[in-house]
């Protein structure tokens, strides 16, 4: 018996024993989807936030349009727009040698999720940077620090503390939103669960999936509490 069949065997849930391995693979895909897109979104989001605050009006307006669109429309629409919509321009992508990318539901999913979370994270970082008192940068300038140094050594460390909570919330939102991947034929945790249900008509498999998602969210929450305690250990709170 494989390890992934054990939990179902132990608690005597036949459907979980039978589909345990698919569920485990699904969990792996969910973690991969979330981990990859959240990290990439972090980098893009930070870059967009800085670009929005530090560049000319045209660039800021473009970034504003981007964040408004991706925060104002459902992720499901964005996913379908990429998977079905962009996927329909087959000849165009073949011309560009990009067809291998838009053909795969996995890549489409990664693409849509990244664009979505980058938009939310850009707003989180922008808010965090703008929340800093202006005196911080002014004092650094008075000390003769260069703009790059001011940003990296004075503004960023403080902004990250402010951004930490909302980033944790965004990560939790992404874990939950990743269930949408199951709607474009991917077998993430939700996809594996849907398959198991469709074959067994045993509703308890959905409850197992719910418990796994809850556990993931709870782990993130605890982890974030630890992270916050560590990052703010120099501050006297309360």
């Amino acid at each position: 018996m494989k390890w992934c069949e054990w939990p179902g065997h132990v608690i005597g849930l036949e459907v979980l024993e039978k589909y345990g391995c698919r569920m485990a693979d699904g969990l792996g895909l969910t973690l991969y989807l979330v981990g990859f897109t959240f990290t990439l979104g972090l980098i893009i989001g930070l870059a967009l936030a800085v670009a929005k605050l530090r560049s000319n009006r045209i660039v800021s307006a473009l970034i504003h349009g981007y964040t408004t669109f991706f925060r104002g429309t459902p992720l499901l629409v964005q996913l379908f727009l990429v998977y079905y919509g962009l996927g329909a321009f087959r000849l165009f992508w073949q011309e560009l040698n990009m067809w291998w990318f838009f053909r795969e539901p996995l890549y489409c999913c990664l693409f849509a999720f990244t664009l979505n979370t980058a938009a939310y994270q850009a707003e989180i970082f922008r808010g965090a940077i703008q929340a800093l008192p202006p005196g911080q940068a002014e004092a650094a300038r008075a000390l003769g620090m260069r703009p790059t140094a001011i940003f990296l050594k004075v503004e960023m460390p403080q902004a990250m503390i402010i951004a930490l909570r909302p980033l944790g919330n965004e990560l939790i939102v992404m874990i939950k939103a990743s269930a949408l991947a199951s709607l474009v034929t991917l077998f993430d945790l939700m996809g594996a669960t849907r398959l198991a249900f469709a074959r067994s008509f045993d509703l308890s498999i959905y409850l197992v999936a719910a418990l796994i998602y809850l556990m993931l969210v709870e782990i993130i929450r605890r982890l974030w509490d630890l992270l916050e305690a560590r990052l703010t250990r120099h501050l006297v709170l309360r």
């Binding site: 959905y206 998602y213 709870e218």
Partner: peptide
């Protein structure tokens, strides 16, 4: 805790 932590899609299906 439950309804904030479980994907909306899953809640809908259940």
């Amino acid at each position: 805790t439950i309804f904030r932590g479980v994907p909306e899609l899953l809640t809908l299906y259940v």
